[in-house]
């Protein structure tokens, strides 16, 4: 069973992803900001991380950079989630080492599909 870490400051978003992913057989851990996400990435050892870009204090890009820059977590796949559609964010996300990018508003089913795709590719 895969463990997914979800960081978003909007409780609604965390809840819906929690609900959907649980139903699909994932274990879900929630974080409310980037700093918390990094701490949980270290302590909980998830299989994949979903980070919202616009979060207070440490934003998603910064959290991604930390995860990818740390030996202990650098192999962890990261999916960025954001309300922004600007190409600048995509570029910054790529530079920070993100593996995929999902734009809000999103379809929960598609999130699941993206997760499976990345996790499958990782296994192979």
């Amino acid at each position: 069973m895969h463990k997914v870490l979800i960081a978003d400051d909007e409780a609604n978003i965390r809840n819906i992803l929690d609900f959907t992913l649980n139903a699909e057989g994932f274990t879900v851990i929630g974080a409310r900001n980037g700093a918390e996400a990094f701490t949980l990435a270290l302590s909980e050892q998830p299989d994949i991380v979903i980070l919202d870009v616009m979060m207070p204090d440490t934003d998603g890009i910064e959290a991604c950079r930390r995860i990818k820059g740390d030996k202990r977590t650098s192999n962890l796949p990261v999916i960025l989630l954001t309300a922004r559609s600007g190409s600048d964010d995509r570029r910054r996300g790529r530079e920070a080492g993100a593996d995929a990018y999902i734009t809000k508003p999103f379809s929960p089913t598609k999130v699941v599909a993206t997760l499976r795709e990345i996790l499958g590719a990782n296994k192979a």
Binding site: N12, I13, I16, F19, F106, P108
Partner: peptide
Amino acid sequence: LTSISAYTEL
């Protein structure tokens, strides 16, 4: 909008 569309889909 994200919440609305995701919850509706669900």
